[in-house]
Design a protein around this nucleic acid. Structure first.
Lengths: 263, 263
DNA sequence: TCCTTACTTCCATTATTTGGAACTTAATTT
DNA sequence: AAATTAAGTTCCAAATAATGGAAGTAAGGA
């Protein structure tokens, strides 16, 4: 099993239990106190206390003077190495830059992981970029351009496995809220070769995305051109579909050369 | 270089052992095969195999089709949340932008963690930024501007604890290679209120940095103005020292307001 | 001061990890 | 093609670490 599912995070094993806890704290809006975590994690006091202690010892969590737990900086160092070495990102980078030059809009690179899209890179305009605000973020697959494009490259059996696990959240009035309508659109995306996000994740934001996959489909991602709805009409977005698909094609070609034809 | 740690990274406990392994793989130059890791980690075959399996199950490592282990993408998602919520960075961001506008050079924000500086933010010019290439990176404290500035804010007893643990690596001819010369310079930095990096970490790169600390010294970091030696003469760098110190002062003032005066 | 709430420590019990060895699979040589 | 070597995987009794109920301590009111 190459990719870990959302389900994959079993809470068995010492590491599994600790990762559940780490997720709980990192996904919170603000630092959590011991009692808050106690209410969320179904663990006895003593056990939870020691588990949090271990995570703090390792720098995965930080405990401030007011006794609140927040994500630790150790994660940053680990992640920067993960990102710096990621082969897919390294291969894609120049092609993303070219697509950005061609379109003048923000370009994203994402990879499917379980039922989430993790953004690996972003090329945007002049302003001093808040890259991290996007890179690394896990977004749902059912309401993002890259996500839906990726789903269109998923073999039918994997797609059937994935769909029941989705929890549809209505981010905007345009968000898919059930598997049926999503599945219908995925059919269209397969034929067209590209996917649109019609303000489904964030109001006022549109994108067009093209899927990227390895021959054996063990790896699936996508590239997108994103921008504000006031500037990107659906007609203009349609024009960027072909450049996006060509960029995806070039990245796939280079992956085949660099990583071998099987994958 | 293996320079991260501090007393924190004990290899006792299940999590500690797994983190040692995770560090080993993330710090490697390239993906490692099982046998490579076996040679590096002092673990029996069976034990190592199960440990790696757990890390892969949790998405902290990834195992490719050729049986090579690489850092996993789960780390990216965790880290992006750690970064997005970091209070110090959020407070500092507008002040970094202002310093960048004033100097026209690259501005860095870093925090001392053990004997490493972890870069938390970066503001640089127009080019589509490779932020992650710097953000999150752990660099040694003894050869970076932010690092030496941070050391100058460390209480004497903490500094004495830290020094013997340093492993001096001669990155360039100008790098400090022993505690004595470093200690002498730290004395100068304390008086001056700012630190220079005279091409000590990377040839051709200079910077001036000012320390940032909380009242109780539980938190120590720094801000720097960095640029190529051909453009930043030592004289020009000297001019940026005051703006850097004023930026540090503003950040500290705001931290005192937002996080309470004790810290 | 007493009372409540929040957090921390203790330790006999329980569950997980350990690691040597046997086993399977893949690659290389004869 | 068979034999040989190397690489990776699985097994299970013993060793070790995690568990969790309960008792202890500290902080913040009334």
């Amino acid at each position: 099993m190459a990719q870990t599912d959302d389900k994959g995070a079993r809470d068995t094993g010492t590491l599994g239990k600790l990762m559940v806890l780490l997720d709980l704290v990192t996904h919170a809006e603000a630092p959590l106190r011991f009692t808050d975590i106690l209410a969320l994690a179904r663990q006895p006091r003593g056990t939870l206390h020691r588990q949090l202690g271990h995570l703090v010892d390792e720098g995965l969590l930080e405990l401030d003077a007011e006794g609140r737990y927040a994500p630790g900086l150790r994660l940053l160092d680990l992640a920067s190495r993960s990102w710096a070495r990621n082969e897919f990102r390294l291969i894609a980078a120049p092609h993303l830059a070219a697509l950005h030059r061609q379109t003048g809009e923000t370009v994203h690179l994402g990879v499917l992981r379980g039922s989430s899209i993790i953004y690996l890179d972003k090329v945007e305009g002049h302003q001093p970029v808040r890259m991290y605000s996007q890179i690394g973020n896990a977004s749902p697959c059912y309401c993002t351009g890259v996500g839906k494009a990726a789903l269109s490259a998923l073999p039918a059996d994997k797609l059937r496995e994935l769909l029941p696990g989705l929890h549809f959240h209505r981010f905007t009035p345009a968000t898919h809220v059930n598997a049926e309508s999503l599945l219908t659109e995925i059919g269209d995306i397969v034929s067209a070769g590209h996917a649109y996000d019609r303000e489904e994740h964030e109001a006022g934001i549109r994108c067009v995305a093209a899927p990227i996959w390895s021959d054996d489909r063990s790896f699936i991602g996508g590239v997108s051109v994103t921008g504000p709805a006031y500037r990107l009409s659906m007609e203009l977005l349609h024009e960027w579909a072909v450049p996006a698909q060509m960029t995806a094609r070039k990245i796939m070609d280079e992956m085949r050369i660099r990583l071998g034809p099987r994958r």
